[in-house]
């Protein structure tokens, strides 16, 4: 069974996918207040992510959530460079798993709070 993952978009991220096929996949959520690209996560990739990141879970919508920002950032980087949300994006991302896990480890100790 495939799951989904939402990649949130801000203006910088939108700029990075401008002109690629992914731009056509942008979805407006919650009355246009949130923009995201929803990508499908095949079961074998989802299982790998759930196994490697203990906090990761499938939520009630069938979305893969509670995953480190480092992983989401790496997936988005591959989405932008490949101009795709296909499984090759996840293959390329998961090939860098050690590096991502190292980043995620730092993230479990400190996330800078926003200045508001």
């Amino acid at each position: 069974m495939a799951y989904n993952m939402a990649l949130l978009l801000d203006s910088a991220r939108k700029e990075k996918i401008k002109g690629t096929p992914v731009e056509q996949q942008i979805q407006k959520l919650f009355g246009g207040e949130v923009e995201a690209v929803i990508m499908e996560i095949p079961e074998e990739h989802a299982k790998k992510i759930l196994d490697e990141f203990t906090t990761a879970r499938i939520d009630s919508r069938g979305f893969l959530e509670d995953i480190p920002v480092a992983l989401k950032r790496a997936i988005f980087s591959e989405v932008a460079s490949k101009g795709s949300t296909g499984p090759e994006v996840l293959d390329a991302t998961l090939a860098k798993l050690d590096e991502i896990k190292e980043e995620a480890k730092k993230e479990s100790e400190y996330i800078p709070p926003p200045e508001i």
Binding site: A6, D10, R57, R61, D66, V69, P112, P114
Partner: peptide, 21 residues
């Protein structure tokens, strides 16, 4: 759907959640 984990992801990424969420 409102998903607590979706919102936690938003917070984690430093996105100010819109007031409808």
């Amino acid at each position: 759907k409102f998903s607590g984990s979706f919102i936690r992801g938003m917070v984690r990424e430093g996105v100010f959640p819109p007031k409808v969420i």
